[in-house]
Structures are given as structure tokens and as C-alpha cells.
Write a protein that binds this DNA or RNA. Structure first.
Length: 241
DNA sequence: TCATTAAATTGTT
DNA sequence: AACAATTTAATGA
């Protein structure tokens, strides 16, 4: 059955925030692009919080407070359309940072971000985000690269939505999650259950299970308990039929 | 550290 | 949707 995520209080994350640990800081890909001075300030202002499964990191219409990144776990980016249907844009695995578009314009969020399972989320205060944009070339390069790569993902996502072959849908969605530029924290193994993947792709768990086994036979992935290992990312991206 | 038990995840119909 | 099989996590001696 489809679990109804219990809607939770928005300020909870803000209240549960704490200082990032050394290991958590290491998982933040753009810190190494900063100059020593910039880095000191960024690390001082970064916060992390534990999000429980079902927690909303941000909601449509709420003002932007942080630029967010995933340290650990898995998030889901989605929006509600006019018909009241929830459509999932993408999953956000470890190493992924998002919301720079709305952060740049200081606009309210235009989508929801929800934790698919217990996760650790990092947040950079909006003022610090803008300060880095004004001072750090390395940071600007990262954000620009991020925007460009995500644009490619959204274009690919439109094609995925139009595909009727479930095996292909799963393959392409997986390829997106294994994107090394957007999600450097993923590596060879993506921690995701078949149920979670089913939510992201919009298929039943049974069908996802079947598709994954097909992809495994084709030596594109290896199914592991609670996760998947990529063997051939290029094939996931471009396989036909 | 090991054995037992509970919980989570996967495989199958 | 239901159930069985498998894997991992938690517990306590």
C-alpha cells in the first residue's frame, strides 16, 4: 500500500539543526573549491539536521532560508499540479545540492522536498550563499555547473516521462541518480530500496523489481540488498529497447 | 563475541 | 495485495 507520509512541522528541521561533523563536511563537494578564508566562513555557517522519513525539507510557497544539500539518505523533489496530482521530478541522493534557482532570486520554493527515508541534510544560510556568490569564483563555477547539469536532467526527465517501456524508464531514472556531477556522493553503489525507486519512477514495486532484474541480466547493474551497483552507466543512459 | 530475535527488504504469485 | 524467503540490525548474555 502507498504509505501516507505524515505531514510534519516545517520548523522541525530548523530546530533540530546542529554543527556539521568533520565527516559530514567532507561530503560537501564544493567546500574544496573555496579559498581558505571563504571556506572558514562557509564551514562556520553550515548547519546539518537529521530528517526523518516523510519530513519536508521545504514546501511550495515557503520562503527560502537555506541552500540545501544531501549528506546522507535520499530525498524526493516533487510538485503538485493543478489537478492535485503529485508529480515527482527527481530523487536527490547524497552529494546533491538543490534550490539554487530559488535561492538566487530569493523567491519562495516552487516545489516540495521530502525525505524518502531518514536522511542527513546540510543547509547553507541564504546570506552566506549570496556572499559566496559575490566573492568566490570557485563557488560560482560550481553553481553554474550545477545549473547546467540539472537543465540536462530535466530535459532527460521529460523524455523519461514519455517512455512507455518500464525497463527503459527505470534504466534512465537510475542513470540520472548515478550522475557523478550532480551527485558525487553516490559512487558505484546507490543506497536505494526498490520501493523507494518505485516511488521516484512512478511504477509498482513489482514492476521495478522485474525491470531491475532485466537490467542485471544485461549486466548494467547488480542488485544488492538495500542498494544497487552500477556496472555500465553509459548503457543505462543510452540503452534501447 | 556469539546466538537469538525482530525488522527491513526482496522475490514470487 | 499478499506471502514467503532472505538479509540486516538490535539485543542481551
Amino acid at each position: 500500500m502507498v504509505p501516507q507520509f505524515t505531514p510534519c512541522q516545517d520548523p522541525s528541521l530548523h530546530q533540530r539543526r546542529r554543527q556539521p561533523s568533520f565527516v559530514e563536511l567532507q561530503s560537501i563537494p564544493w567546500l574544496s573549491l573555496l579559498s581558505p578564508g571563504e571556506r572558514v566562513r562557509a564551514e562556520a555557517e553550515l548547519v546539518v539536521a537529521d530528517a526523518k522519513s516523510g519530513d519536508f525539507i521545504c514546501r511550495f510557497g515557503k520562503p527560502v532560508t537555506y541552500w540545501f544539500g544531501v549528506v546522507e539518505g535520499l530525498l524526493k523533489m516533487s510538485a503538485d499540479n493543478a489537478q492535485g496530482m503529485t508529480m515527482t521530478f527527481t530523487g536527490v541522493p547524497p552529494g546533491g545540492w538543490f534550490g539554487e534557482g530559488t535561492a538566487l532570486k530569493r523567491e519562495p520554493y516552487r516545489y516540495n522536498i521530502q525525505a524518502l527515508r531518514n536522511s542527513v541534510v546540510a543547509g547553507l544560510p541564504l546570506d552566506t550563499f549570496h556572499w559566496l556568490l559575490d566573492h568566490s569564483i570557485g563557488f560560482n563555477r560550481f553553481v553554474m555547473n550545477q545549473l547546467n547539469e540539472r537543465l540536462g536532467q530535466f530535459i532527460a526527465a521529460r523524455e523519461i516521462d514519455r517512455m512507455n517501456n518500464p525497463d527503459l524508464r527505470v534504466a534512465r531514472s537510475l542513470a540520472a541518480l548515478f550522475n557523478p556531477v550532480l551527485y558525487p556522493g553516490v559512487g558505484d553503489i546507490l543506497r536505494i530500496t526498490q520501493q523507494e525507486l518505485a516511488y521516484l519512477v512512478g511504477l509498482s514495486r513489482q514492476r521495478v523489481n522485474e525491470a531491475l532484474n532485466t537490467l542485471q541480466v544485461q549486466a548494467m547493474i547488480r542488485i544488492e540488498y538495500g542498494g544497487l551497483r552500477v556496472l555500465d552507466l553509459a548503457a543505462l543512459r543510452s540503452s534501447i529497447q
